[in-house]
């Protein structure tokens, strides 16, 4: 068992795969916003990659363990401590009853925005529609279908032999994701790009613009600040806003939606469908970065990628190593 003392900006129980196969009734995947850090902290302590872990947003998170376990924390570079002593990120650390794990506050120098706390055996919550992840917009899954609050007591899993064997090991430096304040997302054009919706020059501009994340960013999407898209002239004269089309299923997560003249990157808990175009779509390998965008500060660029190139990337799987 472990008790939440302070939940940070938003803390939820999430898993790696999320809730798949229900987008046709409006249920998005949910799951780790940074699915790379979430997976890695589980792997560090010898958990299954899909074991439910705590997603922490910003800093100021605090939890008290009430039994022995093994944990690892990773994601943003906000420092974490046990009983006041700093611990390394992506390291399997033993905890004892009464131990308090705490994360520092965010600062102007912070890189990244979300952290993942994995515990041996995972956080024990009921499965709903095939996943343990929390659907914040819908109020189901995870811990009582909601954000964690101070005083919540979470049940933690059984410490397995694999968990025990992991104690003290740390992910090699070369396997740790690199954090920044200027993120590059490889993205495939489509489904609604040039020439039908946006001009050729307009697409060229999207791939050559440095956008800024707005303050209004959460698990349902990341709003970008930048120039208005260059719309196809026929659509401009058709009446209504040129970003409006007959409602369609969205490529989620990954789609870059255009709402009016604002680009919104669709994350793991975005709407599954709607009446706005998606001009480009971030490739699977770069989705994790969305979870680390610092609202109101970080800059975002898109890099052209074609489907073949994106699929080739999926075939290379670098093995993990530990120190």
């Amino acid at each position: 068992m472990a008790k939440i003392l302070s939940p940070s900006i938003q803390a939820t129980v999430q898993d790696y795969y999320g809730r798949r196969g229900f987008m046709d009734i409006g249920i998005a995947y949910s799951g780790f916003m940074d699915n790379l850090a979430g997976r890695l902290v589980n792997q560090v302590i010898g958990n299954d990659i899909n074991a439910p872990a705590i997603e922490i947003t910003g800093g100021g998170f605090e939890i008290e363990f009430q039994e022995k376990s093994i944990i690892a924390i990773g994601g943003s570079d906000i420092r974490a401590s046990i009983n006041g002593n700093y611990i390394e990120h992506y390291k399997a650390v033993e905890v004892n009853p009464g131990d308090i794990i705490k994360t520092d506050r965010i600062s102007a120098a912070t890189k990244g925005f979300r952290q993942y706390l994995a515990v041996a055996g995972g956080v024990m919550v009921d499965e709903y529609l095939g996943s343990h992840s929390t659907a914040v917009y819908g109020g189901f899954g995870g811990f009582n279908g909601r954000n964690l609050k101070a005083g919540d007591v979470l049940e933690t899993g059984i410490v397995s032999e694999d968990n025990k064997a992991s104690a003290g090991r740390r992910l090699s430096r070369k396997c740790i994701p690199i954090l920044t304040d200027t993120w590059t997302f490889r993205a495939v054009p489509g489904p609604d790009a040039a020439p039908d919706f946006i001009t050729e020059e307009g697409m060229e501009e999207i791939y050559n613009t440095e956008y800024k994340a707005q303050m209004y960013c959460d698990r349902s999407g990341i709003r970008l600040k930048g120039p208005a898209p260059k719309w196809n002239a026929d659509r401009m004269s058709a009446g209504g806003h040129p970003s409006n089309i007959t409602d369609h299923g969205y490529p989620c997560p990954g789609g870059v939606n255009i709402s009016g003249d604002t680009l919104i990157m669709f994350t793991c808990e975005s709407p599954t469908s709607g009446g706005l175009i998606c001009a480009l779509s971030v490739i699977e390998e770069d989705l994790w970065k969305m979870g680390q965008i610092f609202p109101g500060r970080d800059k975002i660029r898109f890099k052209y990628c074609d489907v073949k190139e994106a699929v080739e990337l999926k075939k290379t799987d670098a093995p993990l190593s530990f120190e």
């Binding site: 039908d196 919706f197 058709a238 789609g255 009446g275 998606c278 779509s281 699977e284």
Partner: peptide, 27 residues
């Protein structure tokens, strides 16, 4: 047939007509 990402394909009836060009019957 529209490519919609590295793991999405969208098939749409009609090519980008604005909603005002369609009747309820068409939809």
């Amino acid at each position: 047939f529209r490519q919609a990402g590295d793991r999405f394909l969208e098939v749409v009836y009609g090519r980008s007509e604005p909603s005002s060009a369609k009747t309820i019957k068409d939809i």
